[in-house]
Simulated scan of single mutants.
Amino acid sequence: MGDSRHEWMRPGAVEVAPGVHRIPLPLPNDGLRAVNVYAITDGDVLTLVDGGWALQAAREQLAAALGQLGAGLGDVRRFLVTHAHRDHYTQAVALRREYGSAVFLGQDERDTLRTQQNPAHRPLDRQVALLTACGAKPVCDALLAMRGERANADDWEDPDVWIDESTDVGLLDRPLRAVPTPGHTRGHLVYVDDAAGLMFAGDHVLPHITPSIGFEQAPSAAPLRDYLASLRLVRSMPDMRLLPAHGPVTDSVHRRVDELLDHHDRRLADTAEVVERGAATAYEAARALTWTRRERAFADLDPFNQMMAVLETAAHLDVLALRGRLRREDVDGVVHYAS
């Protein structure tokens, strides 16, 4: 992997703190390319933060990495999952069936799991409905033409433990606490080791990219509002080492949170500006903005990333409306915005 930005994806177990190893696992056809799980030694057993995607390649890579630690898949006592996205949750469920390990998940992911378990549900159902309200019919049509059939409902079994404020997630050798950080998903959690100054951040704080907002099956009414509040929450805590789900470990949660807050401030200003110039729907606003650090035109994005761009724009427009900067009105099932 010649690009140093991709070195974090190299297979294996890398010690990032005493008793904590980062293990990257592969993702299929995904721009993120890999997801980190973290193996925490706890006496003679292991706890994993996140489980990866239930793929044969990911299972083999996890088994090989645990082998470096003198352990196997059956030595994982429990999975502390940050949120109910496929690349974090489904392998934990699959390995539980074989080895009896316990799976923990935030209680506010219940609605997402209920939706995924519904036999009538198909991938992207919720996103298609949201895109319709955004006036993005061309993006809807492209997605409907490419989406697959119903995914395996078995991937979405309930956890053993729904984490709420009273749940003890501490280990024998290491005190941990789960902190709700809604935004990326409704029930997203970060796991904090105060004594060691570590934050297992899931997708809440990522070192190289801005986490997506709104890509879930049961989003809240204002996911970006929730996300910004969660960023400020972790910014109010003592600074810690950032152990993210995608990307390398870095030394400061605060530094990256400040960058993310600045990014969203700029994006809110840019979004308000395109509405002032005449964009009336999230689709129109997204087409008027540029995307990624390369400032790509909306038309140059593939349908999936056009979907993400429209939903991100809608999230920013809704925050502007909540702040009184814009007016929001439903016109024949499509949400319109005006200064």
Rank of each mutant, 00 (worst) to 15 (best):
D87V: 10
H88T: 09
T90Y: 03
T90G: 06
Q91G: 13
A92M: 06
V93H: 05
A94K: 00
A94S: 11
A94V: 08
L95I: 06
L95F: 03
L95M: 06
L95Q: 04
R96H: 10
R96N: 07
R97S: 14
E98G: 13
Y99F: 14
Y99W: 13
Y99P: 13
G100E: 07
S101D: 14
S101W: 10
V103N: 01
F104V: 01
F104H: 04
G106R: 00
Q107L: 13
E109F: 04
R110W: 11
R110M: 03
R110L: 11
T112W: 07
T112E: 05
L113A: 02
L113M: 04
R114Y: 09
R114I: 09
R114D: 11
R114M: 11
Q116E: 12
Q116H: 08
N118Q: 09
N118D: 10
P119V: 05
P119R: 01
H121E: 00
H121G: 07
R122E: 10
P123S: 02
P123F: 01
P123W: 00
D125Y: 02
R126I: 12
R126N: 15
V128P: 02
L130F: 13
L131M: 10
T132H: 15
C134P: 02
C134I: 07
G135F: 03
G135L: 05
K137E: 15
K137W: 14
V139F: 04
C140W: 15
D141G: 08
D141S: 07
D141N: 06
A142N: 04
L143F: 02
L144F: 06
L144N: 13
A145I: 10
M146V: 11
R147E: 01
R147I: 01
G148Q: 10
E149Q: 10
E149V: 08
A151L: 14
A151V: 12
N152Y: 00
N152S: 08
N152T: 08
A153C: 04
A153D: 00
D154I: 08
D154E: 11
D155I: 02
D155R: 11
W156E: 02
D158N: 06
P159G: 02
D160H: 01
D160R: 07
D160Y: 09
V161L: 07
W162K: 00
W162F: 03
I163C: 01
D164V: 10
D164W: 03
E165M: 11
E165G: 12
V169C: 06
L172M: 13
D173W: 11
R174N: 12
R174A: 06
R177W: 03
A178F: 06
A178E: 07
P180W: 05
P180Y: 09
T181N: 05
P182D: 07
P182G: 00
H184V: 15
H184W: 11
H184S: 10
T185F: 05
R186H: 15
R186K: 15
R186W: 10
R186E: 15
G187F: 04
H188Y: 06
H188V: 11
H188G: 06
H188I: 14
L189W: 02
V190D: 11
Y191W: 07
V192E: 03
V192P: 09
D194A: 13
A195D: 15
A196I: 06
A196K: 08
L198E: 02
M199V: 15
M199I: 13
